[in-house]
Design a protein around this nucleic acid. Structure first.
Ligand SMILES: [Mn+2]
Ligand SMILES: [Mn+2]
Ligand SMILES: [Zn+2]
Ligand SMILES: [Zn+2]
Lengths: 140, 140
DNA sequence: ACCACAATTGCAACAGAGTTGCAATTATTA
DNA sequence: TAATAATTGCAACTCTGTTGCAATTGTGGT
């Protein structure tokens, strides 16, 4: 049962269980790809205020339930984290893929970001790798 | 003389020479790192309308004079392209670095983006690599 | 140097995205 | 079930980005 899974996820992250959080988490679990703020607003229907969506995403980010994916068109996407990202510590070192045909953004969990040697004096804290092209489904 | 260089750059890209374009190009040439829209608006002073800045950046992008850099905080930065990017064809395969301390974004021209093998069915068209951390100057 | 034409600009008006304070509602714990 | 703390919705606001249109400016040819 998905409902049970949702409540467990919220409890595990020390979040109180509310309708809005349940609904947004459900959207992520039903979904293969990443979601933008407006995706969520649209699919959550008229049931929740815009502000609640903003605050919920912010909370989920801080708790390490989701991570954000920067895109070239200035519209951040969000995707579920793996289990070991709790507590605000993210360990997502996978590549993100954006399809130029259908627009979907997915986490390529199997493709890890290679480590890069930077010039002297630069210290790496986080690496984002974003690949755009044509996705599996759009390649007929 | 910088003024001469600016006009040549505009002519080479088949753009008419106007005050706004001159000023914005000057900002990029005076600058080591990348600039956001609001950086430009601020530094260009009250001299130009917001809309002109948007349209000028758009034009520069299309002509291959500048390229855009996606960031995690939803604020696109822009940086000058190398000479071989004219005509809307970009050949920037370098890594971008954002300093968490001072906030500046720079093109690491010497660091090329490694090629990545994607799962079957995915076709790569463009790769963005964005590293955040502490930059050279902030590492005292 | 001037003119005609095309391109660029500023302005106004608008749409969308994101933020904040506050009061009402709801969840948690005892 | 009641007390307390957290979450939510609402209103108001700011900031960002877009569009149409008329005024201005740049360009190339005379
Ligand atoms: Mn991901
Ligand atoms: Mn660059
Ligand atoms: Zn696709
Ligand atoms: Zn720095």
């Amino acid at each position: 049962m998905m409902e049970q899974k949702i409540d467990e996820l919220l409890k595990k992250n020390h979040l109180s269980i509310t309708g809005g959080r349940r609904k947004i988490l459900e959207l992520f679990l039903q979904q293969d790809g990443a979601l933008s703020h407006s995706d969520i607003e649209r699919r959550a229907g008229e049931k929740f205020d815009r502000v609640t969506v903003y605050r919920t995403l912010q909370t989920f980010l801080e708790k390490g339930l989701i991570h954000s994916i920067p895109t070239s068109d200035n519209s951040i996407r969000y995707a579920l984290c793996k289990d070991d990202c709790s507590g605000g510590q993210h360990h997502d070192d996978h590549v993100h893929f954006i399809c130029n045909a259908c627009g979907t953004t997915v986490c390529l969990e199997g493709v890890t970001v290679p480590s890069i040697a930077l010039p002297d004096g630069y210290v790496t804290e986080q690496v984002e790798m974003l690949i755009s092209g044509v996705c599996k489904s759009c390649n007929h």
